[in-house]
Write a protein that binds this DNA or RNA. Structure first.
Lengths: 206, 206
DNA sequence: TTTGCTATCCACGAAAAAGGGGATTTTTCA
DNA sequence: TGAAAAATCCCCTTTTTCGTGGATAGCAAA
């Protein structure tokens, strides 16, 4: 039996996975957590072979958690789990050491297959995820990657703060804030604040 | 036993709800569907008392589905279900005839309580949802009403166009565009374009 | 018929952002 | 340890927006 641990902030999803895996003969769910730090704690006491990690967690995001898990539990295999099929999420999750990526519309069969594959050291990709990363890059606008400082500044801009106000709040020079602002504009490929906020919200940065 | 029907595009969530309600003594899950039209079909053959409707469905959104369900199955009670706790979603769902609103982080107890309440003709609100709409009106301004011209201008602003560009596009003076812009700022109670776009998107104008 | 709302237009000055450079110091990671 | 990336700071000019304050015409409801 492959010991599996679930990390997701929605009890419904945890219950659903639990249910789906109940009559799998190769997989056993040994525990679950609703945020990243709880998972890191719980896994100390309750070792597992495979972890299902939601990308969207309240404390640290799935990618960060994936890295931390890989550090502390090198033998643990990780499967990313989310509703997003954006290319950058998938590739970043794989970069962070995940053994695959599943969408939340997976069924029980796919779940146990994926867990089995990860456990055996193979890579598992749900069909949609595979299609997404296999598609030529030209037709696939890459979600730009913002640094944490840039995300911070972007959020404050969206709050309606000016460069000066943000500078004061972050204890940095207004010129620095302006630099971040310009970098975000460039990364998003937009020409003003309005389009930047719209893009940022649609891409989930805000 | 209250006959309950689940509509959600994630098998995991359906399985989770099913699981959570398994040992409830007042509720019985009688079916599920993964999109709106399938639900409308299935409910013809399999009547139910209460439907749990996800806001985000692949074909028609929860609000539309809610209206259609109310038309065709007037006795059916509807509970909105989603991860979003934004006011506009909640109120629009209620306007569409729903008997309440649940967040996906609800547990089994809350679920069966909500279903029971809806069945008995009462309104159920998850704690967060209730807090969102129950907040005094002073701190919770009603959604401002934009004129159609203002909405048009707002959309173009969010596209990243300047006053001059918008003026050209709409065959009006840039000064007029500026007036609209100022009126939107005033109605939203914000002080710049960034906050305006954010507000506009959250309120569903964009 | 007055009142209110919408859409249109205007002026002036101050503030902020955009566009276009460069530069230095930490951090991170391979 | 050394290169790359992130975060920090700087200058100058032009464009755009913001904050005041107006005004006019049209239309619809009270």
């Amino acid at each position: 039996m492959i010991k599996t641990f679930i990390i997701d902030d929605h009890p419904m999803v945890i219950a659903g996975i639990w249910q789906m895996l109940q009559n799998a003969d190769n997989v056993q769910v040994v525990g679950s957590a609703s945020d990243g730090y709880a998972a890191l704690e719980a896994l100390k006491k309750q070792p597992a072979d495979v972890a299902l990690v939601d990308i969207n967690l309240p404390d640290l995001d799935g990618i960060e958690l994936c890295k931390k898990l890989r550090e502390r539990f090198p033998k643990l295999k990780i499967l990313g789990l989310s509703t997003f099929k954006e290319r950058s999420y998938i590739t970043r999750m794989i970069d962070a050491g995940a053994s695959g990526y599943l969408l939340k519309n997976a069924n029980g069969e796919e779940l146990s297959e994926a867990i089995e594959a990860a456990y055996r050291g193979r890579m598992y990709m749900s069909m949609e995820a595979a299609l997404t990363i296999a598609r030529p890059v030209a037709t696939q606008p890459e979600l730009p990657i913002l640094t944490s400082r840039e995300k911070e500044v972007l959020a404050l801009i969206a709050e309606g703060m000016t460069n000066n106000e943000i500078a004061e709040k972050l204890f940095i020079s207004p010129l620095t804030v302006d630099s971040h602002r310009k970098n975000i504009l460039a990364k998003f490929g937009v020409k003003n604040t309005a389009a930047m906020v719209k893009y940022g919200m649609e891409a989930g940065f805000i």
